[in-house]
């Protein structure tokens, strides 16, 4: 007889992934029917290019959300945009175009800004949502001040990234690098600290977890992933754009919820977030195959809104019985 116990415990731990996996399969089938072109080499390459910023942005939200206190980073889109416009306007504008400089800048700015937010959350003790809300406003304004309208050029080596002709592309490597960072992170004890802090901060604190360090670490990790997302985004649009990146906030939060993460903390992971982001991508891809004409933008908007509503409700229905049991 086969021992099913490890399998069952694996299932139990990943209960929250059932819905995103099922949705992913359904969407893949639908995509295969509506748009077989997606499954060609260039189709996949294009998909990677388009989906990479969203995947990385969603992954960036994951550790921050996992740290609890309802800390959804509403500022993730504008921060991504901030890195994008500063890269184009300041670095390229000043002639600093080497890949090392560009990557270092993106990772540093993302991490530093997120750590700053963490410090405000911890020491000023303002609710995370408010901190990121004010960040959203601040960064959106700053982005427009740095670059009033879209334009500029990316470093020469990056222009080729945006072609999206072959699967094995630099964007894929950046994506893999992001996943590798995540994988290393889950191997450390820090991952456990993060989960426990998010699940019950008081328990973690009294049990000797350095919860402040954990929160800072979560933001640091998230910030680095925002940096990678910004690089992929810059490669995708091949220019600087002060406004467009702002839309990543809602998309990434939707993808996060769609991937089964709990917005109240403790539960979440890269697999769910990647699946959520892929599902988002597939949905917009599928919507694009219908000829909505001038409705297309609105159709996307309404579907994203509805998906967010529905996945939040599903999340609640899944966790509600447990909360009941707790009382």
């Amino acid at each position: 007889m086969i021992d099913t116990k490890p399998f069952r415990s694996l299932m139990r731990r990943n209960e929250h992934l059932f819905v995103p996996i099922a949705l992913f399969i359904v969407l893949l089938v639908a995509a295969a029917l509506r748009s077989p072109g997606l499954f060609t080499s260039s189709g996949v390459a294009g998909a990677i290019l388009v989906a990479a910023p969203l995947i990385l942005a969603t992954m960036a939200l994951t550790p921050i959300v996992m740290a609890g206190r309802g800390s959804v980073d509403l500022a993730v889109g504008p921060l991504l945009g901030f890195i994008n416009v500063t890269l184009v306007q300041w670095l390229v504008g000043s002639g600093w175009t080497s890949p090392v400089t560009i990557f270092a800048w993106a990772l540093f700015v993302g991490a530093a800004y997120q750590v700053l937010q963490a410090l405000v959350i911890i020491y000023v003790r303002v609710a995370p949502v408010i901190v990121t809300l004010s960040s959203y406003l601040f960064l959106t304004g700053v982005n427009l001040m740095i670059m009033p309208r879209a334009g500029g050029v990316v470093p020469e080596w990056m222009t080729k990234w945006g072609a999206g002709t072959s699967i094995i592309s630099p964007v894929l490597f950046v994506l893999i690098a992001g996943l590798a960072i995540w994988f290393v992170f889950t191997r450390t004890a820090f991952h456990i600290h993060l989960r426990m802090t998010g699940a019950d901060e008081r328990m973690a604190y009294t049990s000797g977890v350095r919860t402040n360090w954990v929160r800072i670490g979560a933001h640091l990790l998230g910030g680095m992933l925002v940096g990678l997302a910004a690089i992929c985004h810059t490669a995708l649009i091949s220019s600087g754009d002060p406004v467009q990146a702002g839309t990543y906030t809602l998309q990434a939060i939707t993808a996060l919820v769609l991937g089964g993460a709990s917005l109240s903390g403790g539960r979440g992971g890269a697999i769910g977030s990647v699946l959520g982001a892929l599902n988002m991508f597939l949905i917009s891809h599928l919507l694009a195959t219908f000829n909505f004409g001038m409705f297309s933008g609105f159709a996307t908007q309404i579907s994203f809104g509805l998906i967010l509503i529905i996945s939040l409700l599903i999340n609640v229905l899944l966790t509600a019985p447990k909360i009941q049991a707790m009382r």
Binding site: A299, Q301, I302, L308
Partner: peptide, 19 residues
């Protein structure tokens, strides 16, 4: 998480109105 719900809700409303 109610505010996230209201955000999604707003998107759905404005999308519907525009359509």
């Amino acid at each position: 998480q109610a505010l996230i719900m209201s955000l999604g809700f707003g998107f759905a409303v404005v999308g519907a109105a525009q359509i």
